[in-house]
């Protein structure tokens, strides 16, 4: 079973929920798909080992064969090749690795190399958590291939908790693909509500069952509660706006390890989530 933890806006407590839920459940796989800012391990401090590089194909142009015709630059939809007077110049960060330039080159001057844009790492912590994380290298633009490779690295069995990137764009879609349930984290503020509404649009469009956790409950007003009620969205949990939680967070300590009564609450919430997942046909 795959459960994604997502939010329209960053900084609402996705990682907090993912880590604390993982620590409350026993044997799980925790998958940090926020590859631009993977933060789960800041709270778990596992000795991660490298599992795989993320390699994207990228063209290599043979200067001896190239006649400067410029067909590759014309074809590339991502402006990854520019034709200068000295010949074609490649901007590898812009390349999507579609292979089109190789097909169009009349001189067969283009071959392909691999380019490492990120890394998949894993570790085991607290005896119960298999932590997986993807990391996009600095200066690299494309998060989705890292997320896709990360998700295909983990096995099918057991409970998988997926910490998604914030927002509603393509990396979020990549992280939500094929999940069984999505928990949306928000704050009881105008920004929180605005971004929740966008996130709800995403999960509805993808047909994923979902519920909401209101974090820092008490800091703003009741507009998120009102919205969820009107839209018939289950509020799975309210985490209060308590200084102790904020301080533990700042130190990188998962709060269930100090405020142990919360483990039971997370377990109960997990039970609620499981009961909301429709049984798949054929299972």
């Amino acid at each position: 079973m795959k459960i994604a933890i997502a939010s329209g806006k960053g900084g609402t407590g996705k990682t907090t929920v993912a880590v604390n839920l993982a620590l409350s459940l026993g044997e799980v796989q925790l998958v940090d798909c926020d590859v631009e800012e993977p933060n789960c391990n800041l709270f778990l401090r596992s000795d991660l080992e490298k599992y795989q590089d993320v390699v994207l194909p990228v063209p290599r142009i043979d200067g001896n064969k190239c006649t400067h015709c410029g067909k590759c630059a014309q074809f590339c939809q991502y402006n990854a090749i520019a034709l200068l007077s000295s010949g074609p110049m490649l901007f590898p960060q812009l390349c999507h690795g579609c292979g089109g330039c190789i097909l169009v080159c009349p001189e067969s001057a283009i071959s392909e190399d691999g380019r490492i844009t990120g890394v998949i790492e894993r570790g085991r912590v607290y005896d119960t958590i298999n932590l997986w994380q993807g990391k996009l290298f600095i200066g690299e633009a494309m998060a989705s291939p890292v997320i896709r490779q990360l998700k295909s690295s983990i096995g099918e069995e057991g409970i998988k908790i997926i910490d998604s990137p914030p927002g509603t764009a393509c990396p979020v879609i990549a992280s939500l693909k094929d999940v069984d349930y999505c928990v949306l984290i928000t704050e009881p503020t105008p920004f929180g509500l605005n971004d929740l509404v966008l996130a709800v649009e995403v999960v509805r469009q993808m047909g994923i069952p979902f519920g909401v956790i209101i974090n820092r409950h008490g800091m703003g007003d009741d507009r998120v509660d009102v919205y969820c009620k009107a839209e018939n969205i289950p509020v799975l949990m309210r985490i209060p706006d308590e200084r102790q939680i904020a301080v533990l967070y700042s130190e990188g300590i998962p709060f269930v390890t100090q405020m142990t009564e919360w483990k039971e609450r997370f377990r109960k919430m997990f039970g609620d989530i499981v009961s909301q997942i429709p049984v798949k046909e054929g299972n």
């Binding site: 631009e36 709270f43 996009l136 200066g139 690299e140 998060a143 914030p166 700042s250 990188g252």
Partner: peptide, 30 residues
């Protein structure tokens, strides 16, 4: 937020960047 394509597009060619952070482990790491 982040470090990917939209961040790069938002800072290329500007005169100055202000980074707002917070004293938490995540804030410092990011």
């Amino acid at each position: 937020p982040g470090t990917g394509c939209s961040v790069i597009a938002s800072i290329t060619g500007v005169d100055l960047v202000l980074i707002v952070t917070e004293p938490t482990v995540s804030g410092m790491h990011d």
